[in-house]
Nucleic acid binder design. Structure first.
Lengths: 258, 258
DNA sequence: GGCCATTTGTTCGATTTTGTCCATTTGCTG
DNA sequence: CAGCAAATGGACAAAATCGAACAAATGGCC
């Protein structure tokens, strides 16, 4: 057999994947009589065209992929740190309290812990749709959604409805996530809506806890939200550089590293 | 076959759990010919995606995906009818309108249709968490959640927050679902919270459409919500008995059968 | 045939995944 | 509630996979 045309080869890869669901690079290389490198190049190109999804060792058909939106993918970054932070956060919660969970992946981990082992009589308030979704069949929790306009692809509710909601409640604790923590300015947010919500969340709670993994420190963003020493505590992981820890503690930040 | 692709392996874990309900680490390791450590890593990742729940020694299927909470199970009853009703409902929507989707399985089908082919500039208001979840990464829609207390296992938000929300808005159309439609009294609801919400949803819209499959007619429930002839239209399926159709039309109900 | 653009193959260091060992935690049992 | 076996997850090692860079081959075109 002579060499197939490149286009024909790629077509066969897609067909194979449609039929079998997944394929490995060596498998395809052997079947199509080309090198593995060529297969990898084909897969890369086909992925760009949206015809399949690459994985380590091969590729899977689009519909066989365990669904993951860009937002949800964030949950797989710094998982260890976020889980440790979430555990520390949950330890602060006492039975009968009411807490606010800000939208975000770290707070999502807090929600997952609460779902499995909820303290008695806990009330959870959140503007995160994924958290709402996870907690809404949990029999031991009272769960309250804030309402508001859904931010496209971010699974959180913001805007005037959400803001007014937070203006009318008072909770024992708020757990706030972060995308950016400037070492001097403190918590920052990429857009005014989120910034506004986070500020109101803090204002609505007697105790405020910033839950943020160490990779977010030293990153600036657009809108100033709150200085770190205004939080009841800042919970982060031990990978935070020692000089940064010192700098924050000099500012009077109550830092908890886990 | 040598070794499974990682993604494929995780897929099989999920499938296995869907079928059997639970699995142990050694069991999975043996079945998939990998070490137990790898299985644990897979389980950890899958737990992050919300596809299962870890336990000591293994994992159990996410009861939400498996045991089909009563709510989700409803999506699999009368699917044909509900889809047809949803299509008819979507045909009523004009570009630029704002609509309210009540919580329920038929309105969920409407949401899925909107997700795939949204009319220009549509605004969707809903108190259904599943609908929020599905629509929140849809770039062509403006989506607004009402807020409110989450009803356990029903994926909808009710209570004073949700009620106040509906008191402050006005939409072009509302699509209301039903569990029970008494032939004389009309739309009924099993509990006062839901009844209250449905009434307010109707009051907040210029046009109201009851979307309900024929199996719900002739079933009574606790709380009276609204007479059928007060709806702009009642959309149901053709399996509705002829004598019932006549009875309703005699009452002045604008009935649409699909 | 000769030339050029494109595609394919090869090598090798970097990256990712998987396996093994071991300290610690967990849940059961007496 | 102490003791124990099983399970867990961290750390590191081993293996597989990837991709960049460059060399070789292919195909079209004159």
């Amino acid at each position: 057999m002579i060499q197939l045309l490149a286009e024909e080869r790629r077509h066969r890869i897609v067909d194979f994947l449609q039929q079998r669901g997944s394929a490995q690079v060596p498998e395809l290389a052997g079947m199509l009589r080309v090198s593995e490198m060529t297969i990898r190049r084909d897969l890369r190109q086909l992925e760009c065209s949206g015809l399949l999804r690459r994985t380590h060792g091969g590729a899977v058909a689009n519909d066989r992929l365990l669904a993951e939106t860009p937002y949800r993918a964030k949950r797989h970054e710094h998982v260890r740190q976020k889980q440790a932070i979430a555990r520390a956060a949950v330890d602060l919660i006492k039975p009968g309290e009411s807490i606010i969970l800000d939208a975000g992946s770290t707070t999502y981990f807090i929600a997952m812990l609460l779902r499995n082992r909820p303290p008695d009589g806990l009330t959870v308030v959140t503007n995160d749709i994924c958290i709402l979704n996870e907690l809404s069949d949990c029999p031991l929790l009272t769960v309250i959604g804030t309402g508001g306009t859904v931010q496209q692809g971010v699974y959180s509710m913001v805007g005037s409805h959400a803001e007014n909601f937070f203006r009318t409640i008072r909770a024992d604790r708020a757990f706030v996530g972060a995308h950016a923590v400037d070492m001097e300015i403190g918590l920052m947010s990429p857009n005014p809506e989120k910034a506004s919500i986070k500020a109101l969340v803090c204002a609505a709670a007697n105790n405020t806890h910033l839950v943020v993994d160490s990779s977010k420190f030293g990153i600036g963003s657009l809108v100033e939200v709150r200085r770190l020493n205004q939080f009841t505590s800042v919970i982060t992981d031990n990978d935070l550089a020692a000089d940064r820890k010192e700098a924050l503690e000099r500012q009077g930040v109550r830092l908890v590293c886990v």
